[in-house]
Design a protein around this nucleic acid. Structure first.
Length: 122
DNA sequence: GTGATGACACAAT
DNA sequence: AATTGTGCCATCA
């Protein structure tokens, strides 16, 4: 019997939700890795979010990866100065101001969903 | 299968 | 306020 065990790993759905959430972030706004992880159903999977986003960078990407920053309000990308600069440049072009230390005011730019789109059960 | 690495986050020092 | 340490989830070697 070919029972299809189509049970997609929770990971698959998590990534799907995370990417979907990132797309909801409008220009000029930002969200943190932890925030996206939480909204996607896995509060502690902040690192996984960045990992997933890394695979969705590109000129034709439908994912505004640049709008996702760390909880300190700064750009991550340790070691990849090129990407880091690109991200900051893109955000500044959207109207997000950065301090001299490379930190933006999360209190001002942080985006938040207006409603919950699915039940979160961890 | 184990250990190291990484676009993180938070508590403790 | 800046560093360090520990926890987390996933990816790679």
């Amino acid at each position: 019997m070919s029972e299809e065990i189509e049970a997609l790993p929770a990971l698959e759905e998590f990534v799907d939700r995370a990417l979907w959430m990132v797309r909801q972030v409008p220009a000029g706004r930002v969200a943190t890795y932890g925030q996206i992880a939480h909204l996607a159903g896995r509060t502690r999977a902040a690192r996984a979010v960045g990992n997933a986003l890394r695979d969705h960078i590109g000129p034709n990407s439908t994912v505004p990866w640049q709008r996702i920053i760390n909880a300190s309000g700064g750009v991550s990308f340790k070691g990849d100065v090129v990407r880091a600069t690109m991200q900051r440049t893109l955000l500044e072009a959207e109207g997000v101001a950065f301090s001299r230390a490379g930190i933006c005011a999360l209190g001002t730019y942080r985006w938040q969903p207006e409603r919950v789109y699915w039940e979160m059960s961890e």
